[in-house]
Design a protein around this nucleic acid. Structure first.
Lengths: 97, 97
DNA sequence: GATCCTATTATTAGCTA
DNA sequence: TTAGCTAATAATAGGAT
């Protein structure tokens, strides 16, 4: 029952060495990422698809999308028919990691 | 040149009515989202693909991915060959908006 | 092991340039 | 436009439950 809480600590953005913390850190960050995505959809009316594979042995897959991953990615990859608004579709601004 | 800055203000997560602010808000939030995704990749070794279509007339597309949108989404949609680690691949945990 | 707590850091809304 | 500033809010690391 100690009252002294430690509070948040700064963390460098480098690969965590497989600690037991990694899974909980992954879950918390994933939740935060999906929340941000949801806010961007609601606030601005953006359309977003996210697919995440968890690290390590579990290797589970999680997704967030509005409207759907398949629709948005097919549109992104140019597999779709020309949409009503056909502008700006051929200058994909890639920001790959 | 007034010194008194106003600082951040709380904002409700509801659809912004097409203000001139919407585009700048979208850009800032998108940058934040991609930064979070990058951190999740680096920190936890997760694999992430994001596709975002901007709202309104511009309707530009932006993406972040590691390793690639196509690879991850094909895996997500079950279009891939069975991966070395074949566990957890058929219980997709959907969290669609 | 998912959720709560909270001190602390991280992000950002509105402004300015 | 795009970028920088900073007060203020939002997110979260480590611990507790």
């Amino acid at each position: 029952m100690p009252r002294r809480r430690k509070g948040r600590k700064r963390v460098d953005i480098v690969k965590m060495e497989n600690e037991s913390n990694l899974q909980v850190t992954f879950s918390k960050h994933r939740a935060g990422l999906f929340k941000k995505a949801s806010e961007l959809c609601t606030l601005c009316g953006a359309e977003i698809a996210i697919v995440v594979f968890s690290p390590g042995k579990a290797n589970k897959v999680y997704s967030f999308s509005h409207p759907s991953v398949e629709l948005l990615v097919d549109r992104f990859l140019g597999r779709d028919l020309p949409p009503p608004n056909n502008e700006g579709r051929h200058n994909h601004l890639l920001m790959n990691h």
